[in-house]
Structure formats: structure tokens, C-alpha cells
Simulated assay, not measured.
Amino acid sequence: MRIKSFSSRTLGANALKSFAHPLRLRIYQLLEEHGPSTATRLAGLLGQNTGATSYHLRELAKHGMIEVVAGMGRGKEKYWRITPGGFSYGDARPADPEVAGALDYLLDDLVRTRGAELARWRQESATAPEEWVQASVYGRRSLRLTPEETARMRDQVFEVLEQYRALSDSGDRDGTGHVIVHFDVLPVGSERDG
């Protein structure tokens, strides 16, 4: 069964290998968190030289991960942003060991990043504005479902998330903040239950 993609693009083998680089991941995360930025500003945040950040920005852009923001910057100065629409890592384990290794690296980083984001919010929530605390939630459910029911639930949740991603991608609006949504669906003990 083919999994429905809720992202505008799926990263191919070359994009996976290119993205699986610590500095590129960090640049992507900074753009995601802070919005459009220049190579010079990113270099300062990362403790790198501008040449290195420029190179890695171009690599991310080559694979459609980021893009230059039209109308921002002066002269040769470029502002970069995350390409709207999201991406996915694909729905199958790559056969090529090098690509599979890159995917493993990216998934391990995803797990680490999620833990760090949860820990960060746990600390920040003590002093965050009350409306953001009230809007947030820690959630976990343990369900007994068939694979078909699980896939249907996943797709329904992604359809809702897609509506809000489109709203988020529609441009700057008053009162918005950077919101992270973690959503994982995974079988536990599937070998044992199978």
C-alpha cells in the first residue's frame, strides 16, 4: 500500500545525503525557528565563517529545502527562508546503504530534536504568556488498532495538520508564534503481537 504524502515534496536520495550534515541541519533549524536570515547572520549564530554558511545554504537550496526571499536584502545580500510546503523522507527504507545511513542520521536527529524541544518548552512554560500555556498540550495515547485503522487515523490527523500548515505558509499574520507539533504513530511490540 502506498502511503499518502502530506508534504509538497519527498526528498530523493541525493537530497537525503546532502541534508544529513550537522551544519545544514542546524542552519535549517535556525531558519525554521527565527525566519528569514542572511549567511552573515547565520555564520554569527553558528560560530562559522560566512563562506561556509553560504556554501551550505546553496546546498540546501539546490535540493529545494530553502529558497531566497524575493524583495529582501540590499545589493548582493540574500535572505534565505524555509521553502513552504514541507517535505517528507519518503515511505520506504532506501536500498542503497549510503542513503539508508543518511536517513538513519536524519531520523536520529529528529528524535533528539524532539526531546530537546519538549525539554525547552517544559522550562519556558513556567514564564510563557498564559495564552500560549493554555494553548499548548503534552499528549500521549496508547491504543489497540489494526494497521488499517492506524493508517486511517494517521491520514486524518495529517489532513488537519495540512490545513494549519497551509494557513501558516500563507504569510505573516498578527499574533502568531512559532509552534511545534510533534506527531508520531508507531507500533510497540509489533513482532511480539504479530
Rank of each mutant, 00 (worst) to 15 (best):
T50P: 02
Y164R: 14
R112M: 11
D184C: 09
A100S: 12
S88G: 08
R112T: 13
A102H: 12
D91C: 04
R120K: 13
M72T: 10
S54I: 00
A20P: 06
E131H: 14
L110Y: 14
A126D: 07
L143V: 04
T10L: 07
H178T: 15
A95Q: 02
H178R: 13
N14R: 15
Q156P: 00
G175E: 05
D104N: 12
L107C: 05
M65W: 00
R122V: 12
E124T: 03
R120L: 09
P84W: 00
L16V: 10
R58N: 08
D91H: 11
V179W: 14
L106R: 07
S136H: 00
T40D: 01
A135C: 06
Y138N: 11
M72A: 13
I27D: 03
S18A: 11
E131I: 11
R141E: 12
L57F: 01
G175L: 03
D169M: 01
I180N: 08
E131F: 10
R81Q: 00
L16N: 10
R140G: 15
V111G: 02
A43W: 10
H178A: 14
Y164L: 13
S136N: 05
E59S: 06
Q134W: 04
V111F: 11
I66M: 00
Q156R: 08
D184Q: 10
T50K: 14
L145Q: 04
I180Q: 03
A20R: 08
E149G: 13
V185L: 14
P129Y: 01
E98N: 06
R81V: 03
R74Y: 09
E191H: 11
V111W: 02
S54M: 01
N49M: 07
H178Q: 14
R144H: 10
N49G: 06
A116Y: 04
V188D: 03
R81E: 00
V181P: 06
L30K: 10
R120A: 14
M72D: 06
A13M: 09
A126H: 12
R81S: 02
G86F: 01
A135T: 09
T40W: 00
T83W: 02
S125P: 00
A15P: 07
L23F: 05
E77M: 01
L161Q: 08
G101H: 13
E159L: 07
E159V: 06
R24G: 02
L31R: 04
K62H: 05
